[in-house]
């Protein structure tokens, strides 16, 4: 199994988009080869972008920006990333979101989308068993997800996550690929609806208590907000007052419902289409 970074581009890029031009330029610098992963061969027909993130495990932050979390940014090979700060790598969260959506949109077959998600699950770095604690749980009714959130010295958000479900782990892997290293406001701007086209498992639009996408994303956003407030000298808000509500009666019982709190009051959000439109100007 080849473990180096593998990014395959095709000729189907929309050349009119300045965003994709930038991305293409960036990717042209990377080594291009077919992934050894088995699913790649199955999607030749409409494959226009396959990001193989196999080398995530090797990535790490520059020693200049130490973080307790083992940072990684799968968009960049380790040797490149090591030399430059994330802000200048050109791949902002909106770009990554667009890439991810394009990638999954290109997969017509549900089976291929599941396979792709499992691939992303497989490349999520091993999670420290000791971090699988109740405080890190993202409460969902169907699977267990653990999430660690930190802000590094440069004010960027760092995420680690894991799940006992491979599909949920795939969701986490995608979210981390997009949001690890992002600015807090970028984390806040992400909307679960934007991930609709990934379309694996539960439909992302569904505001359900078993919607892992939404559970993890909201948890990332809430904890980001708390860290921002903490760094700003303000008292952080009570984290996850509803989903992780624990009612103690001597013996403890977790509340049955995993209710979603009202969305955080965030800066005016742009829709994906608006962002696309802005990017192409």
């Amino acid at each position: 199994m080849n473990s180096s970074s593998t990014i395959t581009t095709s000729t189907h890029f929309h050349s009119s988009s300045s965003c994709t031009k930038i991305l293409r330029k960036r990717y042209d610098n990377y080594e291009t080869r077919h992934s050894a992963l088995k699913f790649n061969a199955e999607n030749e027909k409409n494959k226009f972008l396959i990001l193989s993130l196999k080398s995530i495990k090797n990535y790490g932050f520059s020693p200049k920006s130490p973080s307790k979390l083992h940072a990684r940014n799968p968009s960049l090979p380790a040797e490149v990333e090591f030399e430059r700060p994330l802000e200048t790598d050109g791949l902002v969260v909106a770009d990554k979101l667009q890439l991810l959506v394009l990638e999954f949109k290109s997969l017509d077959e549900p089976l291929d989308r599941v396979k792709r998600l499992l691939h992303y699950a497989a490349i999520l770095p091993p999670y420290d068993e000791s971090a699988r604690v109740a405080e890190n749980r993202v409460v969902g009714c169907a699977t267990q997800v653990w999430l660690e959130v930190e802000m590094d010295d440069l004010g960027r958000m760092r995420f680690r996550a894991d799940s006992d479900s491979e599909i949920s782990k795939g969701f986490c892997s995608c979210l981390i690929w997009m949001l690890d290293g992002a600015k807090p406001e970028e984390v806040s701007e992400m909307r679960a609806e934007d991930l609709e086209h990934v379309n694996v498992g539960l439909y992302v639009k569904a505001n359900s208590r078993v919607n892992t996408w939404q559970n993890v994303l909201i948890s990332m956003q809430k904890r980001t907000k708390a860290l921002v407030m903490e760094r700003g000298g303000k008292n952080p808000p009570l984290l996850e007052p509803l989903p992780s509500l624990i009612v103690n009666h001597g013996s403890s019982a977790e509340a049955q419902g995993c209710l979603f709190p009202t969305r955080l009051v965030l800066p005016e959000l742009q829709t994906f289409d608006e962002r696309q439109s802005l990017m192409s100007k």
């Binding site: 599941v114 006992d164 479900s165 498992g201």
Partner: peptide, 14 residues
């Protein structure tokens, strides 16, 4: 070694 939610997801989708 397979999460039941993964099983349920695959059964539904496939």
């Amino acid at each position: 070694n397979i999460h039941p939610t993964d099983i349920a997801t695959f059964l539904d989708q496939q």
